[in-house]
């Protein structure tokens, strides 16, 4: 079973990003949106946690990155930017969606 995990809370304010990263298996994907996109900035204290999951694809919602001033040069390597349609596609491509609220 492949799972799309979605997280929307800041990793520094809530434990959902951390818990999500601790509960993903290889072959799954994580989509960061709303305040969770702050988890995709490189050079941050949680970068190793975010990149430490093997075989897990990382996505971030473009509109939320743009709103928060997170430009492409600030992103962790390997994080793929998707738009709202891409969000829908990801949900359709995976067997299920697990929301970390």
């Amino acid at each position: 079973m492949s799972t799309l995990h979605t997280v929307n809370k800041s990793p520094y304010e809530k434990s959902s990003v951390g818990s999500c990263l601790a509960h993903v298996n290889s072959g799954s994907a994580i989509l960061f949106y709303e305040d969770a996109v702050y988890a995709t900035i490189k050079g941050a204290s949680i970068e190793q946690l975010v990149t430490g999951t093997e075989g897990v694809k990382l996505y971030a919602l473009g509109a939320d990155l743009k709103a928060r001033g997170i430009t492409d040069d600030k992103l962790i390597d390997g994080v793929e930017i998707v738009d709202y349609a891409g969000f829908v596609d990801l949900a359709a491509e995976h067997d299920r969606v697990q929301a970390w609220v």
């Binding site: 304010e13 702050y38 743009k66 709103a67 928060r68 001033g69 997170i70």
Partner: peptide, 14 residues
């Protein structure tokens, strides 16, 4: 997280 308020190039049009 308050430091994020002052980031450059914020654009909420999306």
């Amino acid at each position: 997280d308050g430091v994020y308020q002052l980031l450059k190039s914020q654009d909420t049009s999306g």
